[in-house]
Amino acid sequence: MDDDWERVLWKKKVYPDNYVPSSFLSSLTRNPNFRPYTYMSLVFSSCAINQHLSTIFTFLAVFVRLNEQLLDPRVLVWLSICGFIAVYAMWELLDYCSDNKTSTSTQRMEAALFPFGPRVHTMHPGAKTIKSSILVFLALMSLSPVLKTLTAATSSDSIWALSASLFILNALLADYTALRPETYHRERRVVAPCPTQLGLISNVWFDVARLTSVLSMNAAISAAVVLASRLPDDISVFALMLLSIQLFALFPILRRRLQGDSRAGQVLLTSVLSASSILSAASLSFTATCLIAVTLAFVTFVAPGVLVWAQKYKNEIRGTWDPAVPKVHNTERPAEFRGQSR
């Protein structure tokens, strides 16, 4: 009926200004990029959160044991060292495997990208790592009396509240995305000249991750420092700080790297970590154990279900009024191509 109606403003029209044409809102599209989630893929994605929460719970359980002198701090130190060596060996093994898999072309590309490459390899990366870990070890050891008395004057109530909020902050801001393979390959070579292991960490964090994950790590380490002031002796403080650095600074890198790999590995790692957190709490408090179990189950099994259910309320509206996204070739093309593009 409105054949002669046109979507133009410059033409004089017989129709009134509030005439609703049949083509009204014809350009409207709803949920154009809709991609329904599947429950299982969400469960796998939530494994990272589960692993992170498990490490926090395990850490807390260890702290309680140290605090009540149920655990000898020396044992913990030795466990941490053994764990570190084992995990480092695993990391090197993974690197070795993936280096064999990816062809030498990446190395050639790296050489082009980083012309100072040769200097990087003057010292074996493994030796560097050992040197820097010993440095961190000694620094922590000498700092532990200071850390012990740092917040000693604060009352315990404040400490519990503060550490709880810091751990919540840590869990909220943590980076749960997988590490892209090309990033850590590059990191390994570029970062090698950094004198300390922490240098590697900060480089990985700063280069790859956003500011939030740096904040997340800092929150966790601060929480550990705050908790350490409640411990009875220096060696316990040292043991706890060593553990906290491994769990909150080093482990997330490993976790993000493993995330991209096999699903079976994910399931295995998640169940090992969940089991360890539940078991370590089991002998301490029944309520805490229940809470941990329920939290982990909720994160892994219920929350994905809620997200799948909530997706039916998704209502994304797109139309001609949306700001366009400009398509610009970012790569700088040689001048001779520029003229021929037509």
Binding site: L25, G319, W321
Partner: peptide, 21 residues
């Protein structure tokens, strides 16, 4: 404009005939 009208009708959930161009 007609585009503006479609946008406003959607944003404010108006009856289309109360919106003039």
């Amino acid at each position: 404009s007609h585009t503006g009208r479609e946008n406003t009708v959607l944003r404010a959930k108006l009856a289309p005939h109360t919106a003039y161009v």
